[in-house]
Amino acid sequence: MTGAKNTKSEKTVGALVAGLKVLRYMSKVEEPVGVSRVARDLSISPSTCFSLLRTLVSEELLNFNEERKTYTLSTGLFELAKGALDQDHSLRVIRGEMRRLSLDHRVTVMLFRRLGADRVFLAERIDADAALRVHMSVGQRLPMYIAALGRCFAAFGQIDREVLRERFKELRWESPPPFKEFWADVKNVEKQGYAVDRDHFTKGITTAAAPILAANNFPLMVVSAVGFSGQFDDQKLKALGQDLRNASEVVGEWLGRES
C-alpha cells in the first residue's frame, strides 16, 4: 500500500513537464528560434513542439514573431518570477539597501540572480533620481561573466581559469579588456570585495558590483550600481565600491541568520 501511495504522489503531468522543458530551453538560447530548432534540440516531434509553443504564446509566456516565425521569452514569464520575488522577505531587506545606495551615489542599483549555469537575470532595480539614467528591464538576462557583476560571480563561483577564458571569448563587449586584466580584476574581488568595469561592457558606462555570499562563500546574488562614466572620479568610484561591499555584507549576514 505504501509503495502504491508513493507512486501516485510522484505522478507528473506530461504536457506540463514538456512545457517547462521548453521554457528552460528558451531561457538559455540567446537568439530567437523556430519550431524546427526547438524540436530538434529537445528531441520532440515538430507537431508536439508546435502545440507547446503555441500554448505558451497564448499564455503570454513566449512571444511569436509572425514575419520570422521565431519565438522568444515574453515578459509575462518575468512577471511570474517577480511575483515570487515580491513574496521573498529577503528581497524586501535588499531593496532597502539598494534604495540607500541609489540615493547616496545617484546611481541606478540592480540586483542580479543566477539563471542556470551561465546566465543571470535582473531581479530588481532602483532607478537613479536623475533626468538621465541608465535603464534595464526587470527580467532582462545577461551572460554571467560580463561587466563588473561577472567579475564577482567568477571570483566566488569556483570556476577554473581556463574554463573562464573560454567563456570570456564568447562575451560581447564594446571594448573588451585583455583576459589577463580581467582575471586580475577577478582575483582582486576576493581581496577588496567589489569589482569595477569602466567603459568595457558599454562605452561611456561604468558599473560597480559586489557579491552577496552564502555561508560557504558561494555567490547567491550580485548588487550592481550603474552610471555614466563621467559621474565618477577615482575617489567616488572607490567610495561606491566600498559601500556596495558593505551593503552586500549586511544582506549576506542577514540571510545567514534567516537560514
Results as ranks from 00 to 15, higher is better:
residue 24 R to M: 09
residue 28 K to A: 05
residue 120 V to L: 04
residue 160 D to I: 11
residue 215 A to S: 10
residue 92 R to G: 01
residue 187 K to P: 03
residue 186 V to T: 02
residue 72 T to C: 09
residue 16 L to S: 03
residue 9 S to K: 08
residue 179 F to T: 04
residue 56 L to H: 05
residue 140 Q to H: 10
residue 197 D to R: 02
residue 77 L to F: 09
residue 120 V to Y: 06
residue 162 E to Y: 15
residue 220 L to Q: 08
residue 29 V to I: 14
residue 252 G to R: 04
residue 233 D to R: 13
residue 7 T to P: 04
residue 190 E to G: 00
residue 150 G to E: 06
residue 238 K to L: 12
residue 106 R to D: 02
residue 173 W to S: 00
residue 156 F to S: 01
residue 231 Q to G: 09
residue 182 F to A: 00
residue 172 R to L: 05
residue 26 M to Q: 08
residue 109 V to N: 06
residue 103 L to F: 07
residue 152 C to L: 03
residue 50 F to N: 15
residue 82 K to M: 08
residue 156 F to N: 02
residue 41 D to A: 05
residue 251 V to G: 00
residue 201 F to N: 07
residue 200 H to A: 05
residue 43 S to A: 14
residue 58 S to D: 14
residue 228 F to T: 11
residue 71 Y to H: 03
residue 43 S to R: 15
residue 96 G to R: 04
residue 259 S to H: 12
residue 203 K to Q: 11
residue 228 F to S: 07
residue 17 V to W: 05
residue 1 M to K: 13
residue 60 E to H: 14
residue 143 P to G: 08
residue 235 Q to H: 15
residue 185 D to E: 13
residue 83 G to E: 09
residue 77 L to C: 03
residue 184 A to I: 13
residue 188 N to H: 11
residue 144 M to V: 15
residue 148 A to E: 00
residue 11 K to S: 13
residue 54 R to L: 10
residue 158 Q to G: 15
residue 173 W to I: 01
residue 141 R to E: 06
residue 152 C to K: 03
residue 99 R to Y: 15
residue 129 D to W: 14
residue 97 E to L: 05
residue 155 A to K: 05
residue 67 E to R: 07
residue 109 V to I: 09
residue 255 L to K: 03
residue 95 R to W: 12
residue 146 I to T: 12
residue 148 A to R: 01
residue 172 R to A: 06
residue 100 R to I: 02
residue 11 K to G: 13
residue 3 G to W: 15
residue 140 Q to V: 09
residue 162 E to V: 15
residue 212 I to R: 03
residue 159 I to H: 02
residue 230 G to E: 12
residue 216 N to F: 10
residue 56 L to E: 06
residue 200 H to K: 07
residue 42 L to Y: 04
residue 202 T to L: 12
residue 192 Q to F: 00
residue 62 L to G: 06
residue 126 I to F: 09
residue 181 E to C: 06
residue 229 S to Q: 04
residue 189 V to S: 00
residue 39 A to W: 03
residue 39 A to N: 00
residue 251 V to M: 00
residue 47 S to Q: 13
residue 72 T to E: 12
residue 49 C to P: 03
residue 244 L to F: 03
residue 191 K to P: 01
residue 168 F to Y: 06
residue 74 S to N: 09
residue 206 T to P: 02
residue 94 I to D: 04
residue 111 L to I: 07
residue 130 A to F: 12
residue 55 T to L: 12
residue 124 E to H: 13
residue 125 R to C: 10
residue 195 A to E: 01
residue 236 K to W: 14
residue 231 Q to Y: 11
residue 42 L to H: 01
